[in-house]
Amino acid sequence: MDLYKKTYRVSAETKKAVEEIAAQENCTETAVFENAIRYYKDYLYMQTDGAFINESVKRTFLASVNLMESRINNRANKVLSELAIQQAIICQVLAHELEINPRALDGYRRAAVEYLKMNDRVFRLEDILEE
């Protein structure tokens, strides 16, 4: 970031307020002025462009949404992983205990895919047993 030196005239009251804020926030007076200009820029944007929220609120909100989305994805991935493991166990037990023709498996797969497509991906054992 390039820094430029420029002199501005401010009232004694403003000077005192900037010094107090800098001491309170443990930062430089330049940082106080930069933050003030940034906030004023957001204020002007809200007044002229009709924005609903300013940039700092928007960034905070998006960070919160991204964190929540990440947590939900992690939990969903854990559940899906556990389901995949359980299904693999069931398939191995069935394959070991039943004598299934390998050529028939492709037919079973096609029938299962068609069934799930027709029923909005809802699998009900009662429906399968009736067929």
Rank of each mutant, 00 (worst) to 15 (best):
Arg59Ala: 11
Leu62Arg: 08
Arg59Ser: 05
Ala36Thr: 11
Asn54Ile: 04
Ile37Pro: 00
Gln47Tyr: 03
Ile53Met: 13
Ser56Thr: 12
Phe33Asn: 02
Leu83Phe: 13
Phe33Asp: 01
Lys41Cys: 11
Lys78Arg: 09
Tyr39Trp: 13
Ala36Gln: 02
Leu67Cys: 04
Asp49Cys: 12
Thr60Pro: 00
Phe52Gly: 14
Thr48Val: 14
Leu67Pro: 00
Thr60Ala: 13
Thr48Gln: 14
Asp49Met: 13
Val32Thr: 03
Tyr45Asp: 14
Glu55Val: 07
Ile72Leu: 14
Ser56Tyr: 09
Ser81Phe: 07
Asn54Ser: 07
Lys58Cys: 05
Ala36Arg: 04
Asn54Glu: 10
Leu67Gln: 13
Tyr43Gly: 04
Ile53Pro: 00
Ile53Leu: 12
Gln24His: 14
Lys58Trp: 08
Val32Trp: 03
Leu44Lys: 07
Asn35Glu: 15
Ile53Gln: 10
Val79His: 04
Gln87Lys: 06
Leu44Gln: 09
Thr48Leu: 13
Glu69Gly: 03
Ile85Phe: 03
Leu62His: 03
Lys58Thr: 05
Tyr45Val: 12
Arg38Cys: 00
Arg59Cys: 02
Ala63Ile: 02
Leu80Gly: 04
Lys78Val: 09
Glu82Pro: 00
Leu62Glu: 11
Ala63Glu: 12
Tyr43Lys: 05
Lys58Tyr: 11
Met46Ala: 12
Asn35Lys: 15
Asn54His: 07
Val65Ile: 14
Leu80Gln: 09
Lys58Phe: 11
Ser64Trp: 03
Ala31Glu: 15
Thr60Asp: 12
Arg71Pro: 01
Asp42Pro: 01
Arg75Asp: 14
Ala36Leu: 11
Thr48Gly: 06
Thr28Leu: 04
Gln87Glu: 06
Ile85Cys: 00
Glu34Val: 08
Tyr39Pro: 00
Phe52Cys: 06
Ala76Ser: 14
Ser56His: 10
Leu62Tyr: 09
Lys41Ser: 10
Ser56Leu: 14
Ala88Arg: 13
Ala84Val: 01
Gln24Asp: 08
Ala23Lys: 15
Ser56Trp: 05
Arg59Tyr: 05
Lys58His: 08
Ile53Thr: 08
Tyr43Trp: 11
Thr60Trp: 06
Arg38Ser: 08
Glu82Thr: 08
Ala88Leu: 07
Gly50Ser: 01
Arg75Asn: 12
Glu82His: 06
Val57Asp: 15
Gly50Trp: 03
Glu25Ala: 15
Thr28Gln: 00
Ser64Ile: 02
Tyr45Ala: 14
Asp49Arg: 13
Ile85Gln: 03
Arg59Thr: 09
Ala23Met: 06
